[in-house]
Amino acid sequence: MFKKLVNKKRLNNEKGLTLIELLAVIVILAIIAAIAIPAIGNIIENTRYNAVKADAINVLNAANLYFTDEPDKTEVTVKTLLDEKYLDTAGKIPEGNTNKVTKEKFNTLTTSAIVYTNSKTVTFDGATIDSINGDKQKGSKESNKTIPSAPSSSGTSN
């Protein structure tokens, strides 16, 4: 019986949040959101940039298979790789005739500017798999990027 009285008394003394406490919580959540939203936007842009780089690596790998089957060829377009089923999808890499892989010591990819988010673009200019993997640029930084071929290691360094 005594427990029931204590519990009833405890229920009667409970109060909800005051308006000031509720406003404080809302302000804290707004501050956290103001910090988090730009960071999430940068993560999304970096991910889109990395997705285009992954598409480029897929094109280069498909070209490796193509050049293995066609050793007399020295160049192949992305459209040819798609038409001849060496590549299921080129992702963000356009099928145009200017987007091609050239057979050299290492296969190199050359493309026109590829939009990966809003007005930000990336261009592959004789890029190899190593140069794409070695690229340290962030997708959320400067707007137009170019991934060139890897620098040769035959030069002298001081």
Rank of each mutant, 00 (worst) to 15 (best):
R10Y: 12
I114Y: 06
Y66M: 08
V6P: 02
I31Y: 01
T108N: 06
F106E: 15
G139I: 05
E104V: 08
I132Q: 05
L19T: 11
V6Y: 04
T89H: 07
E142N: 12
S154F: 10
S131C: 04
K53W: 04
N64H: 10
N158I: 10
S149F: 00
I37W: 05
T89D: 12
K145N: 08
I26R: 03
G155N: 12
S143N: 14
A150P: 00
T111M: 10
I147C: 04
N58M: 06
K85R: 09
K9W: 12
S143E: 14
V78F: 09
T128I: 03
A24K: 04
Q137D: 15
K138F: 05
N46A: 02
D135F: 05
N46I: 02
V6K: 11
V25L: 14
K120F: 02
G139M: 07
S154E: 15
V25A: 15
Y49S: 03
G139S: 08
P151M: 08
S153P: 01
N50L: 09
L82K: 11
S157C: 02
L87F: 04
A54G: 14
N58D: 12
E14R: 14
N99R: 00
E84H: 04
L29W: 00
P71C: 05
A36L: 11
N99W: 00
L23Q: 12
S119M: 09
T89L: 05
K103A: 15
K136D: 08
N118A: 14
V78Q: 08
S112G: 14
K120N: 12
K136Q: 12
V52P: 07
R10L: 15
K141N: 12
I43W: 10
S112N: 14
D125H: 02
L17R: 05
N99F: 01
E75S: 14
E142W: 06
F106S: 15
A24Q: 05
L23F: 11
I57P: 01
T89E: 12
